[in-house]
Each structure stands twice: as C-alpha cells, then as structure tokens.
C-alpha cells in the first residue's frame, strides 16, 4: 500500500522521478510511452463505447442502457488512471534497473469486458424492448 502512495506522490512531483537512478536508453523510454498510449487508447475506446451505448441504443430499457454505459465508462476511467500509474512504475523501475512491475489489471479488465459482453448477449436473447 505504501508503495502505491509513493507512486501516487510521484504523479504530482514530476521532477522527483528524474532524481532516481540513471536515465535509461531513450528507446526504452519511448517504448514505455507507447505502452502508455496503447492503454490510453483502450481507455478512450471504452469511453467511446459508453457514449455509443447511450446514444445509439435508444430502444434499450433505461436501466440496462445506463448500467452498460456506466460499466464501460468506469472501466475507461480506471484504465486511464492505471495507465499513468503503470507508466510511472515502469519508468522508475527502468531508472533503478529493477524488474518491470507485474500487474493484475489486464486480467481484471478482460473480466469486466467479458461481463459487459455477457450482459449484451442476455439483452439480445431476452429482448431489447424498453419503456
């Protein structure tokens, strides 16, 4: 937990990350940046999905539509925040010459996406009609 808090403080004290260890080869930093961007794109896709569910499925009952949209949007927000956190941790690990951090997040995200997909299957099978 304290590791998490220290990571969180690094978010807001950008200069501190430069004080640790040595600057890695710029190619590794760029690779880390691209991973960060891939996660941001994933977050944007989830958020876009949330907007799309809300805008393009007006026939769905309000509760189901809001639930699906909220699930996708929450996953998107988590994804974006986690992208920064993971990027900071990787950057620090590279500077210190440590192993890159491992993460449970991809498994968690795939579970959420699977749940949303399952909910969609149920919605399709048992009718869309809302009032």
């Amino acid at each position: 937990m304290s590791e998490f808090v220290r990571g969180l403080r690094l978010w807001f004290a950008p200069e501190r990350i430069r004080e640790e260890g040595d600057t890695p080869d710029y190619r590794f930093s760029l690779a880390n940046e691209r991973t960060f961007l891939a996660w941001i794109r994933t977050a944007l896709a989830l958020i876009g999905g949330g907007f799309a569910v809300d805008q393009f499925l007006p026939g769905l009952a309000w509760g189901i539509r809001a639930g699906l949209a909220l699930g996708l949007l929450a996953a998107g927000v988590l994804c974006a925040l986690r992208a920064v956190n993971h990027w900071v941790r990787c950057e620090r690990a590279m500077r210190r010459g440590e192993d890159l951090p491992s993460s449970r997040f991809p498994a968690l995200l795939s579970l959420v996406v699977a749940l949303v997909a399952l909910a969609m299957v149920v919605v399709v099978l048992f009718g869309w009609e809302g009032r």
Binding site: W11, P14, I17, Y26, N32, E33, A80, L81, V84
Partner: peptide, 16 residues
C-alpha cells in the same frame, strides 16, 4: 526526451 509525468497526467486527465 522521455515523456514528462506532467504530460502523461494531462493526457490521462483529459480522457477521464
């Protein structure tokens, strides 16, 4: 230069 934490945070904040 490597990505600065401020830029990373701004990109994520706009997404959020």
């Amino acid at each position: 230069d490597p990505l600065s934490p401020r830029h990373a945070l701004t990109a994520a904040a706009c997404t959020v």
